[in-house]
């Protein structure tokens, strides 16, 4: 599942349309839209809002390590080499207020430019704020809040900020339709990145399947296994599966066994151990 956090509806709109998301009717402070593979939340502007909305979305949808979360929105550029409309995948996100920096794992292939994002608590306008105090290539008002919150839930190769350059900090009025256009034009690039993330997840999606977990639970219950024995059983099954494609048929025979005491269970556990080693 991909989770997306935007600040404004104008940023969310093209994404909602592109992925065919539907509004999720929920009694919540945030607007949420979701489809089969993508869920989006509109946070509103600011670090705290972004942080809250990110936590809300990831907790509400019970995000796991297999999922990824993106902050997509517009930003102002300090770096004049960045063009208006360029999508920037940020390899460093600085929170201007504390100078704390966050680093996503740049592992997935993409065709965007890369840069440093600096998040401010206020709109940065050239002339009102000394340029030499801006460390980032681009500035926004959400990235750092989003990143810190998302890092509580997901590994750093699954948390990313993508910013589309909207202005050069001239303090221009933000026109919603222009914002939507900027985001819309970059969605194929963003989707390409999402597909790299998805492929990586497929490569590393190991562990136990739901069915295998069910077998462990059933054996643990029927054979009155202790917590440690259940843990050992899980590990033995992983050991067996690292060498074989599927579990041995004989293991399924143990599913019909029910023991009356823990000592009886131990005897069966030793037999299972032999079978899986």
């Amino acid at each position: 599942m991909f989770y997306i956090v935007t600040a404004y509806h104008a940023e969310a709109k093209p994404i909602i349309e592109y992925f065919g998301l539907k509004k999720v009717v929920k009694n919540s402070r945030f607007q949420v839209f979701a489809g089969e593979e993508v869920a989006l939340v509109e946070s509103g502007p600011g670090v705290v809002a972004s942080s809250c909305a990110t936590s809300f979305l990831l907790a509400e949808f019970e995000a796991t390590d297999r999922d990824a979360v993106l902050n997509i929105g517009i930003a102002g550029a300090k770096n004049i080499n960045l063009k208006k409309g360029d999508a920037i995948l940020c390899h460093k996100i600085i929170y201007h207020d504390t100078k704390r920096a966050f680093y996503p794992d740049m592992i997935a292939r993409h065709d965007m430019k890369e840069g440093v994002l600096e998040t401010f608590d206020f709109p940065v306008i050239k002339g009102n704020f000394p340029e030499d105090r801006i460390e980032g290539d681009a500035v926004d008002m959400e990235g750092a809040g989003f990143f810190e919150a998302a890092s509580f839930f997901l590994p750093p190769h699954k948390v990313h900020c993508i910013k589309v350059i909207h202005d050069y900090l001239e303090g221009v009025r933000v026109e919603p339709s222009f914002v939507s256009d900027l985001i819309r034009k970059n969605l194929p690039l963003i989707e390409g990145f999402m597909s790299s993330l998805e492929s990586i997840d497929c490569l590393f999606s190991v562990g136990l399947s739901g069915k295998e977990k069910e077998i462990i639970d059933k054996l643990a219950g029927n054979l009155k296994l202790t917590f440690t024995m259940t843990h050992q059983l899980k590990n033995l099954i992983l050991f067996y599966l690292s060498k074989h494609e599927r579990l041995p048929g004989e293991l399924y025979d143990f599913l019909n066994v029910r023991v009356n005491s823990k000592s009886e269970g131990k005897i069966y556990f030793e037999r299972i151990k032999k079978l899986l080693c």
Partner: peptide, 22 residues
């Protein structure tokens, strides 16, 4: 791409990194 960092642990010791993916 060169990325400036304050301390190597800011990158090396981030929580929840996946060694096998990296």
């Amino acid at each position: 791409l060169k990325v400036r960092i304050k301390h190597y642990k800011d990158v090396f010791c981030r929580p929840r990194q996946n060694f096998f993916v990296q």
